[in-house]
Write a protein that binds this DNA or RNA. Structure first.
Length: 109
DNA sequence: TGAATGACTTCGG
DNA sequence: CCCGAAGCCATTC
């Protein structure tokens, strides 16, 4: 078992800090963690977030506001439904009003 | 140890 | 803004 490294845990923590109905990007989290550039690892950490169901991975999207990771959820549209459930308008795989819903941990925090 | 992978980002055209 | 290619870093085989 790959034990949860500080990196994973930190990503999970930041993800949990994302306000309701808001979204953030992998790069924003990565940069906040000081590992700017390792945005992919954030995604990888989210993959490990399956260990922490409290981690709202559906609030984490790429910088375009595109639900790139929706395929990693159980359903094909589960991620979108979760976002819409929070009041986020999603069209196709892209979040509408993304700039407004965007939440940067390094900025807001 | 080295090569491959990936829920990304940035740069040049 | 779209497209293609390179860079990044941790994990896995």
């Amino acid at each position: 078992m790959s034990e949860s490294t500080g990196f994973f845990k930190k990503v999970h923590e930041v993800a949990k800090l994302v306000p309701f109905g808001r979204v953030t990007s992998y790069g924003a989290i990565a940069r906040y963690l000081g590992s700017a550039g390792s945005a992919r690892m954030v995604g990888w950490a989210m993959n490990a977030s399956h260990n922490d169901p409290d981690v709202p991975a559906h609030r984490v999207v790429n910088r375009k506001g595109l639900l790139t990771g929706k395929h990693h959820f159980e359903g094909t549209n589960l991620m979108q439904q979760l976002l819409e459930s929070e009041g986020v308008v999603v069209k196709g795989n892209q979040i509408q009003n993304f700039e407004e819903l965007f939440w940067d941990p390094g900025k807001e925090l």
